[in-house]
Structure formats: structure tokens, C-alpha cells
Design a protein around this nucleic acid. Sequence first.
DNA 1: CGAAGCATTGAAGTGCGTCAACAATCGTGG
DNA 2: CCACGATTGTTGACGCACTTCAATGCTTCG
Lengths: 239, 239
Amino acid sequence: VFGVHLKKLRKRVHISAEEERAIRNCFSESRKVPDHHVLVRSGDELNVSLLLLDGWLARTKDLAGGERQITALHVSGDFADLHGFTLKRLDHDVCTLSDCTIGVAPHERLMELTNKYPRLARVHWLMTNIDAAIHREWTLSLGRRTAMSRMAHLFCELYIRLRIGDRVEGDSYRFPLNQRELSECLGLTTVHVNRTIQELRRRGLVELTRDRLTILDRDALEGVAEFDPAYLYLDKREL
Amino acid sequence: VFGVHLKKLRKRVHISAEEERAIRNCFSESRKVPDHHVLVRSGDELNVSLLLLDGWLARTKDLAGGERQITALHVSGDFADLHGFTLKRLDHDVCTLSDCTIGVAPHERLMELTNKYPRLARVHWLMTNIDAAIHREWTLSLGRRTAMSRMAHLFCELYIRLRIGDRVEGDSYRFPLNQRELSECLGLTTVHVNRTIQELRRRGLVELTRDRLTILDRDALEGVAEFDPAYLYLDKREL
DNA sequence: CGAAGCATTGAAGTGCGTCAACAATCGTGG
DNA sequence: CCACGATTGTTGACGCACTTCAATGCTTCG
């Protein structure tokens, strides 16, 4: 289970056996959390960071009127709130979108890790910077892409991110979000999300059932989305 | 000039005299860059990071059709591409929005700094995490706020960010963006930006001239924006 | 003074939102 | 295993926030 996280790191940087041990050592326990639970609430003081071992998480922000925006999605192997290690509290909630398994890294251990292995500090820093790059791509989507292109883009992004952790079968992956949650990612209403999905189906680009997304024509989908995975930084670098 | 940057850091963490010296030591030269220049191009390999000593910068992303989204604004004292230190290339361009003065930090010096002072690695990591928090707030704006509220929110955010660096006089600050650039921040057209500004003026909330923004009723503006500066993390923490 | 960029305005169009009803599916308890 | 309420997905009619297009006036600066 933990291997997915290391695989994600190793997609971007070299990790030695010793470094791997040091990273594993940061995690004390692992917990199961049911669907639709709030894991971290905005403003709470933090002294641990959570690694998502399995399942789906969202970072959500709300307006007074009840409108909700999901600012990020997380899948197996992602750190949910590594940024909380330096921020000490979050500006958003972290909620489960499915049953989840979570690894817990106390901040004091991350402190020791980053003191003893400055390179691993940079590696983890890199991972939060990749999160930020995804935020920027979402900003572009929300600001300038149409509903159709925005949705297509999200499906392409998740395909690539899930593939790193071997969570893709063929051109299909588990997709636990309902249309309301999808609308909260895309800045749309559920009604318009529904119509947009139907248009994607009608064009033969995707199939979306209760719990599973299948990409029927990846080239065409990426075309609609103007998808370029460069922002996911899937190449190795020296640190 | 460099003091503004340190002031920004010290708003969030303690920086000792020795640490200050170490940080200053990272910067080799300083450069002047004229208005509307591209400082860093998306995809270029990076070996320096740029500190904005004076002026305004934008991070921009484009679609094939020519639509442009500004994903972040930077003012005096902000690092423009500190995230480039770990990413090694950017997923966006960095452009000047005014005449600028830039400090240059070669990555090898940042490497030495983060090796020798793990705490300063965490401090700089924190700063990129605050950038990401601002990205998330923009995501919320683009996804869920109306044009009016979105614009009001941006004006409130910049007011606070500029005040840290003493770039605010009364309730007024220099604002070099034209309506096109403003529309690129807000995900709107220039026509609608123009009409929204007029509505803000009509309600007596702001005054916006060629080069200057004046907030006439900050409480009301923050109300329209549902502005809460918590996401800017303006409190001190241990690292 | 003249050209180029920028701000402003009006009229008409559209992508997406709102409201409201209904259908399908799911989860639960009997 | 079925019944039934609750949740989720689907559809239609209509409305609006924002866009598009295009013209005009206003700055600014060589």
C-alpha cells in the first residue's frame, strides 16, 4: 500500500534504500476512515500530516451561501495535507469521497526527517509544488475553458495520476464522485454537469457509470481538453 | 529594497541575524526589467530563482485559442518562481506588469542554503505553500464567486499583501494592471470587467484610475467579497 | 498633432443557472 | 428477497450573468 506513494516520488526523483527507510519511519499508525467524513477542518491546529494510502479525498472551500468548491482531488499515494506541516493550519477542509485508508505522519517526525535529510525536505517540497501546479491548471480550467473542455481535462488528469499508482484498468478507472461533487470540482451546477456528461457520451468520448469512468477515445478527449501532462512533472530531476 | 522580502518572512516566522545573512547571501546580482517582458517561459530549464524586489509580476497560462489566464500576481518582496527550485521548469510564463527590479538566486546557492539550514528550507517551503493557498482562494473565486465579488476579493487581497511591504498609502495603492490584464486574472472579458468596475464605483466601494486603486469603503468591499485573510497566514509559527 | 492603445457604451446572443418535476438506483429494514 | 424511502440522475422550460461584436471617445506619448 505504501509502495504507491514511493512510486509517485520515484517518478520524479531518485530515492535510495536508506531514504526510503527514513520516509517509512515517519509514519506511526494507519487508520481507516469511512466515506464522506471530514478529516481535517479549516483552521484546526495541526501536528500530523496525512498520507492517503487508498481511496479518494477532496480539499473543499465554502462560501457563506453554502456554495462549495473542491480545490483539489487526491488519490492513493497522495499526501492530503503535507502543506499543513509548514502552514500549521489549513485554509480548507479535507473530506473523504470514498472509504479511505490513511497513514499518519507526526510533524515532529517530519521535522527530524527534514533536519537529517535536507534532500528529502526538497523532495517533499517538490511534491507540494506539484500540487500547486495542479491548482494552477484548475485555475486555467475554471477561468478559460468551457464546461465540456473543463470536464474532459479533469478526466484526462485523473487518468494520468491514477495510472502512476496502477489504479487504471485498460482505459477505465474507479470514479467515486457523484454529479454534485463533480460540479463542485468544475464550478458548475449539477444540472449542467449532467448535460455535459451526456454530450461527452453522445460524442463517444467517455462512459460514466455509478462508480467507474471509462475513456472511449483518449486522443479525442485530450483534444477537447487541450490536455498536456507537462504540468504533472512526470520526469526525473536532480535534487 | 531587500528588506521587504525579509519583512514578509518575519510576518510568518522568526528569522535570526545569522539566518538573514545566509538568505541575503543567496542572491548574486539584481536586474532591472522593463514593463511587459517575459521573464521566464513555460518549460525552460531553470537554474536560478527570481525575487521581485520592486514592481508587479504575473504568472500566465494560455490556451491554443489565445485565451490567457493569470494564475497569480506578485508584488514587491514576493519570490516569482521559488517553486522552480524544485520543479526545475515551470508550467507557466512569468511576465512583468510594470517596470521591475529583480534579485537573482542561483539554485546552487539555494541548495547550499537548504543543506546548511534545514529550517530555512522549511521557511521557503512555507512561502511556496502560502502561494498555493492563494491559488486555492482564486480557484474558489473563479468557481463560485460572481464577477463583482471576485473583483472585490482581489482588491482586498492585494490591499493586505501590499500593506505588509508598506506599499499602501491610506486605503490606496498603485495598481498597474489595465482592464485586459484584470480580466485575465478574473476569468472575465474586458467588457464585463469594465461594467463591474463601474458598478463598484457606483456603489462607492472603490475608485480605480489609470495607475491607482483606492478603497473607499473597506468594510463594504470585504463584505461583497466575503473576504477573510486567514488564507494569507499572517501569523507567526514555529518551524 | 496624430496614432495607438485603452476605456466605455449599446445591442444582441449564448452558455450555463434556476426551478421544478420525474425516473432510476441504492441502501436498509422487514 | 422484496418494499420503500432516500439519494442520485435526468429532463424541460425559462431566466440571467456574462459574452460578443462593433462603434466611439479618451489618454498618452512620440
